[in-house]
Every structure is written in structure tokens, then in C-alpha cells.
């Protein structure tokens, strides 16, 4: 191992973040290279001192401030609870499942009625003139253009007859 490679590993070696096998080969290098050894010692000292400083300079909350911060955080009565809080799997699966369900329902609404019609032989393409004839009780009925509606008053016995065209618009008969 050359000095350049050793020096690139020194910062991590100081914190024991490299494998033991590498540490051993680095220590073997130090025996023949006082410069790298010196660098390593310097890293060790830096790390030791900075850790000490960080530990000495630890600050804490004043109880009043901490309580205030907590109070502000729980201003809302209850934290938001997602409806998926008890979903045991990944949340993205729940959303995918929901999406698929929506697609399936949509397809059911679109395709479903046409399937039912087909099963009954009422499909638009199969609804021939012959079948249409079966639904008509008489040939005259097919030509029916006018519908009449009779209203009779119970009290007076007055009878009113309305004539409506096929669009249910009132037709005035002279």
C-alpha cells in the first residue's frame, strides 16, 4: 500500500470504520513510514478533542421552553391518523389496489349492461326488426304517434283528456 492510498484511509481508520484486516495492513505500513504514522496520530487527536468539545458543549432546554414547544406541537387535539394506519403491507399496494378497484367498477358499469343485453338477446346489433315486431302487440301500435291522458275529478266528475305527441308535448286538437 502506498502513502497516498494510506492517507485516504486515515480519517476512517481514526474512527475504526474500516475492516480490521485493512487496519492491520495500515499499521504495518506505519512501521516503515513515520510521516503516515504522524498523520494518523494527528487524526486521532483531532477526533478525540472534537468529541470532547462536542460533549462539553451540550446544551439542554429550559423546562419552560420545552413545555412551550411541546404545547405548540400538540395544538391540534389529535394527530392526523391515516385510514391506512392498520394496513400491514406497503401503502403503495393499498393505493394500487384501490386504483384497480375503481377501474374494475368503471368497466363493470360500461361493459356490464351490454353483456346483460347480449345474454337476453337484446344487444343493439342483434335487435333486429323481427325481434322488434315481437314487442309490438299490433302493427298499428308501431305507428302510434299520440298518447292520451285522461284526468277525472272525484268531486265533480269533470273529465279532462290530454293528447301528447311522441315527445310528450301537449298537442292542441281543434
Amino acid at each position: 500500500m502506498n502513502c497516498r492510498k494510506v492517507q485516504s484511509l486515515l480519517p476512517l481508520m481514526a474512527g475504526s470504520e474500516i475492516p480490521k484486516s485493512k487496519i492491520l495492513s495500515l499499521k504495518a505500513h506505519f512501521e516503515n513510514c513515520p510521516k503516515c504514522q504522524q498523520e494518523y496520530d494527528s487524526y486521532m487527536l483531532t477526533l478525540k478533542k472534537t468529541k470532547e468539545w462536542l460533549a462539553k458543549d451540550r446544551i439542554d432546554w429550559e423546562e419552560r421552553d420545552w413545555q412551550q414547544v411541546l404545547k405548540r406541537a400538540i395544538k391540534d387535539k389529535k394527530p392526523e391518523v391515516s385510514p391506512l394506519v392498520y394496513w400491514p403491507f406497503k401503502k403503495v399496494w393499498a393505493y394500487s389496489l384501490l386504483g384497480m378497484l375503481v377501474v374494475a367498477l368503471t368497466l363493470l358499469f360500461i361493459i356490464g349492461p351490454s353483456i346483460t343485453q347480449k345474454e337476453m338477446g337484446l344487444g343493439s346489433e342483434k335487435f333486429t326488426e323481427e325481434q322488434a315486431q315481437l314487442f309490438r302487440s299490433s302493427p298499428e301500435e308501431s305507428e302510434q304517434e299520440v298518447v292520451s291522458m285522461t284526468i277525472v275529478s272525484k268531486e265533480t266528475g269533470l273529465k279532462i283528456v290530454w293528447f301528447l305527441n311522441k315527445n310528450f308535448e301537449l298537442e292542441v286538437k281543434e
Binding site: A73, I74, D76, P79, E80, V85
Partner: peptide, 8 residues
């Protein structure tokens, strides 16, 4: 605030 809100 974030911890409380998104604890779920």
C-alpha cells in the same frame, strides 16, 4: 409539529 402530525 411534524412528528406529531405524521406520527401515523
Amino acid at each position: 409539529i411534524k412528528v406529531y402530525k405524521h406520527l401515523d
